[in-house]
Nucleic acid binder design. Structure first.
Lengths: 221, 221
DNA sequence: CCGCGCCTAACCCGAATGTGGTATGGTTAA
DNA sequence: TTAACCATACCACATTCGGGTTAGGCGCGG
């Protein structure tokens, strides 16, 4: 994988359009023992020109770059230097960007508000063959993983379920398995009436008026 | 999400067949500030009965359970309590198990030889919305991502329907669209009572006793 | 022609479900 | 500390469903 020299500083290349942040990160990296900011590029094109030639150990890349999107830059980069690990940095937590990045070939994904210590640790980790992600992102990745691997025994529809509380989702899940109200009550160890109360709220939130309609929405039609 | 009380102990449910390990983990958890072992189940069935009712914050589950496999237990559990995070524990490191677990709905994956500190940290992390995994596992997941191209979905009805007459299939199709009996009657231009007669036959043929069960069978579960 | 399966239809009755109102205690965000 | 939200719970009433039973009309194969 990565024949990095453990006894030398990890060579980091930075791709970040914001001059302030770029300078800060550069200073931070060079001020940290075991790390060296080998180069800092302001945009994707510059990165694509410089990185394959300079062969850093790790790339830190902003996801929002002017001109060329960070995700596209990663894709290009991965074709040129497939084993070079790339850590994406972003302020956004939205799954669209996360998945795009990962599918483009990013090795890890961090939020910009990640602390200095965690960032350095993540760089070490990715350099050691890991795939560092913030917890929110790891969770999303796992969820997505589960979704794309779903068996024909397909269940719940994420978009529908989003407004429901945990308990409501549990009740709906049981409903969608065909349980009668009293069975759901027994299953969740709550009263029959409470099940009915939850169901009323669920129906209201889903804009339906019957059990079957709710189940259909839950199953994504 | 999880409305867990940060200032209160994280309620952990344990599923582990080995009595020694179960006792050890229980003691360890209860002896650690911020954690409480709410319940310890020796097998999957006991867990499925107890967990949805007791609503722990996190489940620790052995992957090798007698009777019901841990992965199957997770799958069932995830259908009942979709947002309840489950950490899998295992001695096996092989990817087969890892992917099965994750695909079954496990939120994180730990090796049993994980240190006490790391285990507690992982529980905290999963409770905070993360998805703790060893670096090798995270990397595998990410790699998987990079080569996934999906074109899934939609399995319609199937062999369940072969015993049904044409008319019965029409009625069932309408039922599966969420129509009420009288709406079906109107749709097919037959009487309400005839609809009910058909439905009785359909239920009998499908061996079900409720509308929702019939629809689930029709949709291929 | 006769039986058999299918579509149609009706009646009864009890169980399950849908909808409205109301209330209490716990947790959380403002 | 309010206000908002959540999970819990009960009451009441109307509607819908599930199951048992019976039965007339139709078409098809023996």
């Amino acid at each position: 994988m990565n024949k990095s020299k453990v006894n030398k500083a990890i060579q980091v290349a930075l791709v970040e359009d914001d001059p302030n942040l770029r300078a800060n990160l550069t200073t931070m990296l060079n001020g940290s023992s075991g790390f060296q900011c080998q180069a800092a590029y302001p945009d994707g094109l510059a990165a694509l020109r410089g990185i394959p030639a300079n062969r850093p150990d790790v790339v830190l890349m902003d996801i929002n770059l002017p001109g060329m999107l960070g995700t596209d830059c990663v894709r290009e980069l991965k074709e040129l230097t497939p084993n070079l690990p790339v850590l994406m940095l972003t302020v956004y937590e939205d799954s669209e960007q996360i998945f795009k990045s990962l599918m483009s070939g990013a090795t890890g994904y961090l939020l910009k508000r990640t602390s200095k210590e965690k960032l350095l640790e993540a760089i070490r980790e990715v350099n050691a063959g890991g795939a560092p992600m913030s917890r929110q992102i790891a969770r999303r990745v796992v969820q997505y993983f589960q979704k794309v691997n779903e068996l024909p025994t397909d269940t719940r529809n994420a978009s529908v379920v989003v407004n429901l509380t945990d308990r409501e989702q549990e009740v709906l899940a049981a409903l969608a398995k065909g349980y009668a109200y009293k069975e759901i009550a027994d299953l969740l160890q709550i009263s029959f009436e409470t099940v009915r109360t939850h169901l009323r709220t669920i129906y209201e939130k889903l804009h339906v008026h019957s059990r079957t309609e709710a189940v259909l929405k839950y199953l994504g039609r």
